[in-house]
């Protein structure tokens, strides 16, 4: 099976190791990966902030870049939700693009969704001996309905001790530009998320979205709390003892 990697702008520019882990992981489970280099961003930052024409410009490029891809896989729940849920809305006035968007959305998957629902794989042969707690990113959870998939994958990681996170399904407070437009509320939500994380005694907090993790890591670092953040792909790619 061959998939195209939709790496997402945040992973591409700031967290490339997550992209590399995603590729490594997919190859390990027997999937060939290509990387359409014409991809840029899915357009979500502009779309969420109400700048739909600008988001459309960028989204058009997505449709172009992935026009030859049969299956698209991405390490980001929010970006996949953007493509699947909101591209049809974004292109509602252009029937052709609307249909293309709908069609492409049907073959675009978030990583854990792809592994569990498409490949039917829950054990990726990973090992990672650490205490880990899982935060459910909002878009993945509510947008894509990813309730179980990441957890099933984590439970099969050898040596990993999965600790339940109180308020695991509560928003971390990032919300894109919300983090800087309403920083006081964003920080207050982050505080609570961090309190909950610390209460678990976990060494690592994992999620399917690097945006949440960047936000959480930013707060942990500022507070000098030694808990680390890791993306699901990084843990699943790990075969270290």
């Amino acid at each position: 099976m061959r998939v195209s990697l939709f790496v997402t702008c945040l992973v591409d520019q700031i967290f490339p190791q997550v992209g590399e882990a995603t590729v490594e992981l997919l190859r390990r489970v027997g999937v060939e990966v290509d990387f359409p280099e014409e991809q840029t961003c899915c357009g979500q930052p502009a779309f969420n902030d109400g700048f739909w024409p600008q988001a459309r410009e960028v989204a058009r490029q997505f449709l172009r870049a992935f026009s030859d891809s049969e299956v698209i896989v991405s390490p980001s729940g929010s970006c996949v939700a953007m493509v699947r849920e909101y591209y049809p809305l974004l292109f509602r006035e252009d029937p052709q693009l609307h249909d293309r968007a709908q069609e492409i959305g049907r073959r675009t998957y978030e990583l854990s969704e792809f592994l569990v629902r498409v490949l039917g794989v829950e054990d990726v042969g990973a090992s990672f001996r650490r205490k880990v707690t899982y935060h459910a990113s909002c878009h993945g959870l509510r947008g894509l309905g990813l309730r179980e998939e990441p957890l099933r994958l984590l439970r099969n990681v050898r040596g990993l001790e999965l600790i339940d996170l109180p308020g695991w399904d509560e928003c971390c407070g990032f919300g894109g530009l919300f983090s800087v437009k309403m920083p006081h509320l964003s920080s207050a939500m982050l505080e609570e998320k961090i309190r909950n994380i610390v209460s678990t005694g976990a060494e690592i907090v994992v999620a399917t979205d690097i945006s949440c993790l960047m936000h959480i890591a930013g707060g942990l670092s500022r507070k000098r709390i030694p808990v680390r953040t890791m993306h699901l792909a990084e843990i699943l790619a790990s075969t270290a003892g």
């Binding site: 969420n48 902030d49 109400g50 909002c138 878009h139 959870l141 509510r142 947008g143 399904d169 509560e170 928003c171 407070g173 990032f174 919300g175 894109g176 919300f178 437009k181 309403m182 509320l185 964003s186 939500m189």
Partner: peptide
Amino acid sequence: FASSLCGA
């Protein structure tokens, strides 16, 4: 804009 769009 007074929302993180968490969808709850």
